[in-house]
Design a protein around this nucleic acid. Sequence first.
DNA 1: TGACACATACCAACCAGTCGGTATTATTTG
DNA 2: CAAATAATACCGACTGGTTGGTATGTGTCA
Lengths: 215, 215
Amino acid sequence: METEIAHKPNAKSTAREATRARLLETGFTLIREKGLAATRVDDICAAAGVTKGGFFHHFASKDEWAADVARHWGKVTSGLFENAPYHQASDPLDRVLGYIAFRRMILEGSTAEFTCVAGTLAQETHLSERTICDAAGGTIFGHADTLVPDISLAKDQYCHTANWTPESLAQFTQATLQGAFILAKAKGGPEIAKDMVDHLDRYVRLLFGRETKGD
Amino acid sequence: METEIAHKPNAKSTAREATRARLLETGFTLIREKGLAATRVDDICAAAGVTKGGFFHHFASKDEWAADVARHWGKVTSGLFENAPYHQASDPLDRVLGYIAFRRMILEGSTAEFTCVAGTLAQETHLSERTICDAAGGTIFGHADTLVPDISLAKDQYCHTANWTPESLAQFTQATLQGAFILAKAKGGPEIAKDMVDHLDRYVRLLFGRETKGD
DNA sequence: TGACACATACCAACCAGTCGGTATTATTTG
DNA sequence: CAAATAATACCGACTGGTTGGTATGTGTCA
């Protein structure tokens, strides 16, 4: 929004960014634990070690903060997936299955540790705060888009005549995960989410004619 | 809770139930639109045509109301599905596929019209209000259980050696739907949810060796 | 010396829940 | 069967704690 004129990054501005990042990343935990509406600005401040004055120095409103949390979540997670090992496989289908296996692997700990901030935000704000929801939707669909190239290649190679699009299959992986998170929240643990991801894995293998692990 | 001693159902007690039901069903809309935390008791009262005193005459707290909303949602939806036409098919797999087609068919209108109250509640309350979350989880998994008999029969008939359980497939249908709702909320319409249900349909057909509609 | 990153103190609006009251309907009693 | 009594359904003003946001002060660094 603001134009940065003649402002070389110095110690001051990196300190600023550090506080901002702390405020934003604090949101990951709080939103996953209680949702946006139940998260108080005071909670955010306490968890980030900043006072309310500091918070509103960085964000014009709680809603603006939430939209930034959604975008920051997108950045942080895309870093995580970019560096994940499954990209090394030479076969595109192996990369897709590797992605799914990776998603399954990181389903550990309490629900607040593996669920999706963007999904939670989208759920809560879809009708009341479109700015936040759009930011959240942007990170979800942006992440889905990163799968499209490999799915496309795999489709060309294994089943190019199939009548589904790579985009919709990429989105389906995200839908499955988001749904798995809800069931995990309802049950109180990650086990059921893993079962759901196993079905996703089985679906993708059936779709591409790759034999299923255990069948 | 209260023991009903010599209390034949009369005009008074049905009036009570009518108000209660109005208060509860008002919750369907409000929770789907804004979630639980953002729903004010005054909103509920205004929408149901009752004052605050009336509300707290029927429910000890907002949380107790929410848990009752989750249970009432289970009752109302189970009525809807019990009377749906897909049960008439003689082949169990046709009944399962009929269920999926039915779920796809009712994805219409605004997100507040087709999304799941129980899923929304579970999402919001999983760590903060276990009573509510358990009630919501009860309706989700209870609904999934209604699919198990047909899935079991279909499995026996078409693929009895497969290494997935009917229970987990039933749960997977629910995960897919819950995830589809989140993507629909993020996108702002039911189209993407239909795409997701199409993938679910394709998965089930592949699993049972029943040819896919369009391939 | 002034821009900036924060702190402190404060406020007005909001909100779940309370409480005393009223109107209507059931139950008991004479 | 009517009058008295009790129970219930609901009202709406009020409250006290909460909450997002503000106004203003202060220390630091370029």
